[in-house]
Design a protein around this nucleic acid. Structure first.
Lengths: 114, 114
DNA sequence: TTGACACGAAACCAAATGGTGTTATATAAT
DNA sequence: ATTATATAACACCATTTGGTTTCGTGTCAA
């Protein structure tokens, strides 16, 4: 049931700074489009479009409340990103340990600091 | 030297599937453009462009070897992504624990149909 | 019921993106 | 010295993206 048939990729969704800011904003509370728009220097329609991209990626949820549409964060798809990044983690960690090793070797026997 | 004055954002760099595949390919070995191109259904020029985007984001390093240009992975900028995602981690974890709680509660008087 | 409001949809536009082929240049091989 | 090769740089094109304004519709309030 997961990220199949999603029109927008999670990676693509979070590529835009405005959309990242949107997610950050919706962390705490569900918000209607107009209130959301107040936080951005662009039209309501533009914000709405970004929200739709996020929605397509499964990162926000819409709820109709009277004539308003409330959006809220749906963080689960970010797990895919976390997983993807974690694959590369060992490589920079490895580099760190190589560097550490190098420093320690340079340091010779002048005392192993942590 | 951090991500200041980088022409391309890390988030934007990893948004493209081709570029993610490129990173994956360069994990193990430094490679010249021609060899890299063999793995992709597009022209060498196109691959080269993607490599430049990655380079702008600091995700790959170029090394001139005779008339060849070798590219290799430079994973460090991904730390920014990891950090960004980790902020949201607690939210899906929280949801999980809420769900767990719910299930356990339901379980108590387990008469619930459906 | 009339009007104001919140929103989505559509038409439109400029700029960025992802691709192409061509050309120029430095290096390698003969 | 000449030729072949690897690549960057360039010019170009189609599509996508991020934004706009306008318009229609459903909902709330008077």
């Amino acid at each position: 049931m997961p990220e199949v048939s999603r029109k927008h990729d999670v990676f693509q969704a979070i590529a835009d700074p405005t959309r990242r800011k949107l997610l950050r904003l919706l962390v705490n509370e569900e918000m209607p489009v107009n209130s959301i728009t107040e936080h951005f220097p662009m039209s309501r329609t533009a914000v709405s479009k970004h929200l739709h991209v996020l929605s397509d990626a499964g990162l926000v949820k819409e709820r109709k409340v009277g004539r308003e549409t409330h959006y809220s964060l749906q963080p689960e798809p970010l797990q895919e990103v976390k997983q993807w990044v974690s694959y590369y983690e060992r490589f920079w960690e490895n580099k760190l340990s190589v560097l550490k090793n190098y420093i320690e070797t340079e340091d010779k026997d002048s005392g192993e600091s942590n």
